[in-house]
Design a protein around this nucleic acid. Structure first.
Lengths: 240, 240
DNA sequence: TAGCGTATTGAACATGCGTTCAGGCTCTCC
DNA sequence: GGAGAGCCTGAACGCATGTTCAATACGCTA
């Protein structure tokens, strides 16, 4: 097997990555496609063309490999976002992966978001902080409506978007839109998702009649005191 | 160990479930808490107070157990929804779990949604069909705005909601709202999630200025022809 | 009471896993 | 040229897993 040493002459245009980098990239692909449980050291080793022992030698354990992948993907997304931010703020969070050039970033993130991982937690926190900033700028420039709870709105919108990414299989099945497509930016099928999403974000779904009813119910609930803690839903369920 | 036969006199108020039912319920709890990978036949058997062999004897294999749990949870949700529908349609999809009295339904669903499972797929399809119906009724009664794409809107809203359920750990961490709380209906902390959600669904987040800009960009894109396939985002990214 | 079928056990099996380790290979530097 | 360091292999180990199976306990029917 070829050594793939980075100190080589560079005459080989095929694959000049370190074996360690190759293992990491392969693992990201494998985690994204098979999930954490379906990814074994032997499978990664086979796909990367190395021995199982080398996987452990470079990353200490499978947990270490997983952590390295988390960090690498989080960094890639952060870099992409930083680049996007430098060239102008964005108003939406749906195009998170747009500028990330690593193909499996979306699928990988989709897998990892539902697990517990410090790196992913930090990434989510960053995305929300960024979104809150974007939204603030959007409000100032008159593009976005102000919110009673800017942070809450950012959290809900980012997590809805990321949740949609996690459920990308269902979106693909139901709308034909693949949110993890590496060529996200140029994929026309994405419109099946974006159009309804922008409709909702554009004007909401409630009519003014219902919205005012909900508002009055909420204020009423506040005045009655929080100990009754009636959910907003109760306003809709008065027929029951 | 006690037999737990269902043909008993019924004098034992402790647990009159069949061993098979006990295994299934325990497995749902275990799948919900530890995920598919973390759930082993021995662990389920221990928690249910039976031998590992009995788990396989009743369900054929771990895959069979998983399928039985899927079906059971899907049925429970469907039953709850049917009951709710009989007493009046609901306008939102956030209270999906509200009437489901089995504590781990929410957590279980959150785990299973991101995997592939025919039972869960059917359930999602049903939820979306129901939501589309609810929305239609809401439009007719003047509560909801009509949509250019009613099905697309239903798909996006249901999957955003379910995606939020999958990411419940992040919601809990960031807003303190636990979407998988068995006592969802009476949980006041849920407001931290519901308030921003209703704000977004109430009036959207775009101002009329941006909305009209997006609309004109979309029609322009349609007229230019689909072969260029510019995404809606391009309207926002003209500074880049 | 005898017989039968189901429920249940606990020991066993094969498999695949993560991980370890002794050793070979290939560079680099003295 | 020789020594050393790092990369890498492949066989091995111990372990946990899903599953099988013979044997036992129980409850119902005749």
């Amino acid at each position: 097997m070829r050594s793939g040493s980075p100190s080589g002459s560079g005459s080989s245009p095929i694959d000049d990555r370190t074996a360690k980098a190759r293992i990491r990239d392969t693992a990201i692909e494998c985690f994204a496609e098979c999930g954490v449980a379906g990814t074994t050291a032997r499978k990664v080793a086979d796909m990367a063309g190395v021995s199982p022992g080398l996987v452990i030698h470079h990353f200490g354990s499978m947990e270490g490999l997983r952590a390295a992948c988390d960090e690498h993907v989080a960094d890639a997304i952060r870099r992409a976002k930083a680049g996007a931010m430098a060239s102008g703020p964005e108003l939406d969070v749906f195009g998170l992966m747009r500028d990330t050039d690593i193909g499996f970033t979306g699928s990988y993130l989709a897998r990892m978001l539902s697990d517990d991982s410090p790196a992913v937690e930090n990434l989510v926190d960053d995305l929300i902080a960024d979104a809150e900033l974007y939204f603030e700028q959007g409000v100032e420039s008159g593009m976005l409506r102000p919110s009673d709870d800017p942070r809450g709105r950012a959290v809900v919108l980012v997590l809805w978007s990321l949740g949609g990414l996690v459920l990308h299989r269902h979106f693909k099945r139901l709308l034909g839109a693949d949110l993890t497509d590496p060529d996200l930016a140029t994929n026309p099928s994405l419109m099946a998702y974006m159009a309804p999403a922008y409709e909702i974000l554009g004007s909401g779904i409630f009519t003014e009649a219902l919205a005012s009813r909900l508002r009055s119910a909420a204020t009423e609930a506040k005045e009655t005191g929080p100990e009754r803690a009636p959910s907003t839903q109760s306003a809709q369920k008065e027929t029951r």
